[in-house]
């Protein structure tokens, strides 16, 4: 049930002839004297949706920042084999407030040539967000949704989603889940951190647990259910508190 990095890499690679890998090699990160990440190692082939779970303050956002390349101050390395592009949906803002929705989309479209702009625009209009709104005018949930669309429709091989479900109502959450399903394919990897275990219960192929600065081995969702008879949420709760 608990597959090591090596096993999952070999198995998946054989099944799908996937050569592209994403992961880290011995990443250590500290904020001052506090060691947040202690030798984080993983290696996943592209193709699927993977969850990263951990308690508050376990370092999930830190890890995602390092994986996305936004934080360069760490020991160790991020490994990207046979691809380059990583898109990141962050928790905090990061957009200049004077920009309008269409400006942001144009900006990302310029620098991410594979962006699917039509889908972004149609999803926004379905949600009632107008192109000419400034970012200031959007509620936090709408900003979150915009960030999600820009990430998932960026065309990047690896998309990192930090708490994509927070701040969103029931309908938006469903939309996000369905979008993730429709956009995933054998050449893309979606990494999601979330506390909303129920939302991702059936969505993810497998998951990793970040505890005490260390990353667990890769758990395959269906195997967890089969061998333990527990849901992913139950299993995770026991693992993280055990």
């Amino acid at each position: 049930m608990e597959q090591t990095t090596q096993q999952i890499t070999q198995e998946r690679a054989q099944q799908t002839a996937q050569t592209k890998l994403f992961g880290t090699l011995n990443v250590w990160k500290n904020y001052g004297s506090k060691q947040v990440l202690k030798g984080v190692n993983f290696s996943l082939p592209l193709g699927g949706i993977v969850g990263i779970f951990g308690l508050n303050g376990s370092g999930k956002t830190t890890l995602l920042k390092i994986l996305s390349g936004l934080d360069g101050r760490y020991r160790g390395s991020v490994m990207k084999k046979d691809f380059d592009d990583v898109a990141y949906m962050s928790v905090e803002g990061g957009y200049p407030m004077d920009m309008r929705v269409k400006d942001i989309i144009r900006f990302f479209g310029k620098f991410c040539p594979q962006q699917n702009t039509e889908k972004i625009l149609s999803s926004l209009s379905d949600a009632g967000i107008k192109e000419k709104n400034t970012l200031l005018a959007l509620s936090s949930g709408m900003k979150q949704y915009l960030k999600f669309l820009l990430t998932v429709y960026s065309g990047a091989s690896v998309c990192l989603f930090d708490e994509p479900f927070s701040n969103l109502d029931v309908n938006m959450r469903e939309k996000i889940a369905k979008t993730l399903i429709l956009e995933s394919n054998g050449n893309r990897l979606f990494l999601i951190t979330t506390h909303e275990l129920k939302e991702v219960e059936t969505l993810i192929d497998g998951f990793l647990i970040l505890k005490d600065g260390r990353l667990s081995a890769y758990y395959v969702g269906e195997e967890v259910r089969e061998t333990t008879g527990k849901s992913i949420a139950q299993f995770y709760k026991e693992k993280v508190n055990g």
């Binding site: 090596q6 890998l21 390349g69 360069g72 084999k81």
Partner: peptide, 11 residues
């Protein structure tokens, strides 16, 4: 900005 393209041999 760490952009290492390192292929890691299976651990």
């Amino acid at each position: 900005i760490n952009d290492d393209y390192v292929y890691v041999k299976p651990l």
